[in-house]
C-alpha cells in the first residue's frame, strides 16, 4: 500500500476554496493539476479501504445505512433489471440490489479503486452473493459500457470524488437506458444555519481526529471534510444533471440536508 499522502501538494489556501484555472481542479480545498486528482483520490481510498465500513459507521453514527436504505426505496428496481452501482466501493448498495434483481438480473459494482473493489468483492462473496454480480474497475468519467445499457445507476458518496463531474454525468447518461433512472446520494448543504455550523465543527475538527485514531490517517479524513464542503449544493447539482440531459429531476434532503438524494430520468 502506498504512503497515503506522499504526493499531496502544499496547502495553498487554508482558509477555504479558491479560483481554479482550466487545467486545475479541487482536491478538497487544495488546487491541483487535473491529471493528478484521480491518483490522489485513489490514495485516500487506498489508505482507508480496509477499515472503510467501520469508519462509515463511526463517522455517521450508523445513519449512513438509513440514507442508503432510502436510496434503495427510491430506486424502483425490479427483478430482471440491470443495475450499475458506480463508485460502489465496498458494495453496500450492490448487495441489496443483487437480491432485488434476482438471478435473471445483473448488478455491476464499479469503482476506480482496486483496493476498494477487492474489499467489496470479498465482502459480497462471503455473503454468498455470486450469481448476478460483476466487478469492474472503471472511471466514472468514461464508463466502459455500451449505450442504453442499465435500468438504474446509483452513485453513493462517489460523485464528490470525481474530477470532471460533468463528464461523469454525461457518461452515466449515455449508458442508462431510456426510461432508466439515476440516483445520486451525496453530502450536500445543510439547510439550517445552526446545523450547518455544528456540522462544520464536526467534520473539520472531530472527523479528522477519529480518522487519525482509527485508521491512523487524519489527512484522508481532512480531505473528506473538505471535499464535502466543495461539492455542489442541491440546486447546483440539479442543474448539472439537467445539463447532462436528465429529466424530471427531484431531490430529497436527509438529516437536514447534510445528505441529499437526487433522482433523474433519461427519456
Amino acid at each position: 500500500m502506498s504512503e497515503p499522502n506522499s504526493d499531496r501538494p502544499q496547502e495553498i489556501s487554508p482558509a477555504g476554496p479558491q479560483q481554479v484555472g482550466e487545467e486545475q481542479t479541487h482536491f478538497g480545498f487544495k488546487t491541483v493539476e487535473k491529471a493528478r486528482k484521480a491518483s490522489m483520490v485513489a490514495d485516500v481510498f487506498h489508505s482507508v479501504a480496509g477499515k472503510y465500513d467501520l469508519m462509515n459507521d463511526l463517522l455517521s453514527m450508523g445513519v449512513h445505512r438509513l440514507w442508503k436504505r432510502f436510496t434503495i426505496d427510491c430506486s424502483g428496481v425490479r427483478p430482471g433489471q440491470r443495475v450499475l452501482d458506480l463508485a460502489g466501493g465496498t458494495g453496500d448498495l450492490a448487495a441489496k440490489f443483487s437480491r432485488l434483481v434476482g438471478p435473471t438480473g445483473q448488478v455491476v459494482l464499479a469503482d476506480i479503486n482496486e483496493a476498494m473493489l477487492k474489499v467489496g468483492r470479498d465482502k459480497l462473496r462471503d455473503k454468498g452473493i455470486l450469481v448476478n454480480m460483476d466487478y469492474v474497475q472503471a472511471n466514472a468519467e468514461s464508463l466502459p459500457f455500451p449505450d442504453n445499457h442499465f435500468d438504474l445507476i446509483t452513485i453513493a458518496f462517489g460523485l464528490r470524488n470525481v474530477t470532471d463531474k460533468e463528464k461523469a454525468l454525461a457518461s452515466m447518461f449515455r449508458v442508462l437506458k431510456p426510461g432508466g433512472r439515476l440516483l445520486v446520494l451525496e453530502f450536500s448543504k445543510p439547510q439550517i444555519e445552526l446545523l450547518s455550523k455544528a456540522y462544520d465543527l464536526y467534520s473539520f475538527h472531530v472527523l479528522p481526529k477519529i480518522g487519525q485514531l482509527v485508521v491512523g490517517d487524519g489527512e484522508s479524513y481532512q480531505y473528506l471534510a473538505e471535499s464535502i464542503r466543495m461539492h455542489p449544493d442541491q440546486e447546483t447539482l440539479k442543474t448539472m444533471m439537467s445539463e447532462a440531459g436528465f429529466e424530471q429531476i427531484t431531490y430529497h434532503n436527509m438529516t437536514g440536508g447534510i445528505v441529499a438524494l437526487h433522482r433523474g430520468f433519461k427519456f
Binding site: 438509513l66 446545523l195 438529516t255
Partner: peptide, 21 residues
C-alpha cells in the same frame, strides 16, 4: 428537521443499528 437531524435520529439510531452490527 431539528428533531430529526439533531436528536431523534441519533437516539433511535443507536439501538437497531448497533443490533444490526
Amino acid at each position: 428537521m431539528l428533531s430529526d437531524g439533531a436528536l431523534q435520529e441519533k437516539k433511535l439510531a443507536a439501538h437497531p443499528l448497533a443490533l444490526e452490527d
